[in-house]
Design a protein around this nucleic acid. Structure first.
Lengths: 153, 153
DNA sequence: GCAAATTCATTCGTATGCAAATGATATCAA
DNA sequence: TTGATATCATTTGCATACGAATGAATTTGC
């Protein structure tokens, strides 16, 4: 029985046999592995920055100065996580922080010139990372896959 | 310009304009979000076990007693990560550890009766997690997506 | 205008995830 | 057989990731 048959069975029948549960066919398990592979490709091409750090810089380049929380929303990180990422970028001089003058709760984040240079320099490498991650697929498959993946995310 | 057009352009042209780099269209960023969504669905249905812990138990159910390293290979975890996962499962009485009699380097891992009960009980919930994760797709799209995702992972 | 609710940020605790270094054991090869 | 390699496991250090609790500041509702 192929993986596809199992999948169809899973969708169609009401009660499945527990012996049929195969971890390596579950979408969560494969998603985790695909993500791991991407992170590994990323690290091989961009050694001095993690994907979340890159995401923060790339988004700041898009939108300019924003609050830490808003940035977290834009790059899908909760408040606790984004704080750590921004702290480390600040320690490396890539971003600078300031208080919002009107709303004193907000911590504004912006690229420094060094941060801007870094993200501009890294974007061509990031394009290669995307291509290498998608390399197992044909051009047509890439279009299909990205459409479906976006529906899941 | 649609996301698909950008994608095609990325594949086809030799040199792209840096202004075209959009984080939210990159496969790595969307993979990370899809994985996050899955973990969130998992946590909502199985509160007392993480996906990696579940994966360890499910694989032990498949293959029976194995070395810690071999288990890590089977569930795509490096040695340091699998050690932490197994330590926590052991602390909760789900697995038991023993030394391999011939090769004294190996640490054998096996389900306890409690661990076996737990994984048998959780598998039906895991099926639901898979279905809910894939719920944004039609049955046909699921087949296509799983085939392409497997090629990437 | 004021109490309640909301928002922004921080901190703590727990759990992956991986690189690198280390130690113990096993295997290979000259 | 023994010296070089390889394998298995552990430890340390660093970086996400998120729930829950907290405090400060703002907005809402009446």
């Amino acid at each position: 029985m192929s993986g596809e048959d199992n999948l169809l069975k899973l969708v169609e029948v009401e009660e499945a046999d527990d012996h049929d549960y195969l971890l390596q066919e579950q979408v969560g398990f494969i998603l985790r592995k695909a993500h791991q592979r991407h992170v590994s490709i990323f690290a091989a091409r961009i050694a001095d920055l993690t994907p979340p750090q890159f995401a923060a810089l790339a988004k700041l380049r898009d939108v300019g100065e924003t609050s830490q929380n808003q940035l977290g929303t834009l790059i899908a990180m909760d408040a606790a996580t984004v704080k750590g990422v921004i702290d480390r970028l600040k320690a490396r001089g890539m971003v600078e922080l300031s208080r919002h003058e009107v709303d004193k709760r907000r911590l504004l984040v912006n690229l420094t010139p060094e941060g801007r240079d870094a993200i501009e320099r890294l974007i061509p490498l990031a394009r290669e990372i995307t291509l290498e991650t998608l390399a197992p697929l044909t051009a047509k498959e890439i279009v299909t896959f990205m459409k479906l993946l976006a529906k899941l995310a």
